[in-house]
Simulated scan of single mutants.
Amino acid sequence: MATAEQRNHARNYLKKAEEYAASAVANLAAGRYTPAAGDSIHAGICAKDAIVTVLTGSTRKGTDHATAAKELRRALGARSVAATAERALRELLAVKGDVEYGTNLITGAKAEPLVRRADSLVELATEIVRLGG
C-alpha cells in the first residue's frame, strides 16, 4: 500500500499523463502527427508511473523500456486489464526511438493508434489512482 507521499507522487504522474494525452489529441487534430505520437508515448510512460507508484509505492526510472512494460504488468497483477495495458505500453515504447530520434515524419495513420493506446493507459491510471486501485 502506498503512503500519502507516494499517492501524491502518483497523482502528479497522472496529471502529467493527462496533460501529455490532451496535447496528443490536440496535435493529432491539428495534423501535427510527430508531436502527437511523442506526446502519446510520454502520456503512456507517465500513466505507467502513476499506476505502478500507487500500487507498489515506487516506480523504476531508466532507459530500458522493456522493463517498464513488465513492471506495469507485475503491478497490475491479476487484474483483467494487465495484459492489455502491458501490450499498449509496449506498442508505445516500440516506436519511441523512431518518433523522437528518427528522420522519418510520423503519419496520421501511425499517430492515431498511438493516441488511442495512450488514452487507454491514462484512463486506467485515472481509475486506479483516483479510485484507489
Rank of each mutant, 00 (worst) to 15 (best):
M1S: 15
M1H: 11
T3W: 00
T3P: 09
T3Y: 05
T3K: 10
A4F: 00
E5K: 14
R7Q: 13
R7M: 13
N8W: 09
N8R: 14
H9Y: 13
A10M: 10
A10C: 06
N12Y: 02
Y13K: 12
K15H: 12
K16S: 13
A17W: 11
E18Y: 04
A21W: 09
A22C: 00
S23I: 02
A24C: 07
V25W: 01
A26I: 02
N27R: 05
L28Q: 03
A29C: 06
A29L: 11
A30P: 03
G31L: 08
G31S: 06
Y33V: 08
T34N: 11
P35L: 11
P35Y: 07
A37S: 14
D39L: 05
S40C: 06
A43Q: 05
A43G: 08
G44L: 07
G44C: 04
G44E: 10
A47Q: 08
A47D: 09
K48Q: 15
D49C: 02
T53W: 10
T53F: 08
V54W: 08
V54T: 15
L55M: 12
L55I: 07
L55S: 02
L55F: 08
T56Y: 04
T56C: 06
S58F: 09
S58V: 10
R60H: 09
R60I: 01
K61P: 01
G62F: 05
D64W: 05
T67D: 11
A69M: 08
E71V: 02
L72Q: 05
R73S: 12
G77W: 06
S80Q: 13
V81G: 00
V81E: 15
A82T: 03
A83I: 01
A85D: 08
E86C: 04
R87M: 02
A88V: 01
A88K: 11
A88M: 07
L89S: 04
R90G: 00
R90N: 13
R90I: 01
E91F: 07
L92M: 10
A94W: 06
A94L: 03
A94S: 15
A94H: 08
V95F: 03
V95Q: 11
V95M: 07
K96G: 03
K96T: 10
G97T: 14
G97L: 01
D98T: 12
Y101V: 07
Y101P: 05
G102N: 09
I106A: 04
T107W: 02
T107Y: 10
A109T: 12
A109C: 00
A109M: 05
K110L: 12
K110R: 15
K110G: 03
A111L: 10
E112M: 00
E112R: 13
P113S: 04
P113D: 00
P113Q: 10
L114I: 00
L114S: 07
R116H: 12
R117S: 13
R117G: 02
A118S: 14
S120F: 01
S120E: 14
L121Y: 05
L121M: 12
L121P: 08
V122Y: 09
V122R: 11
L124E: 01
A125E: 03
E127F: 11
E127W: 13
I128K: 02
V129M: 09
V129N: 03
R130G: 07
L131K: 12
G132M: 04
G132H: 01
G133D: 12
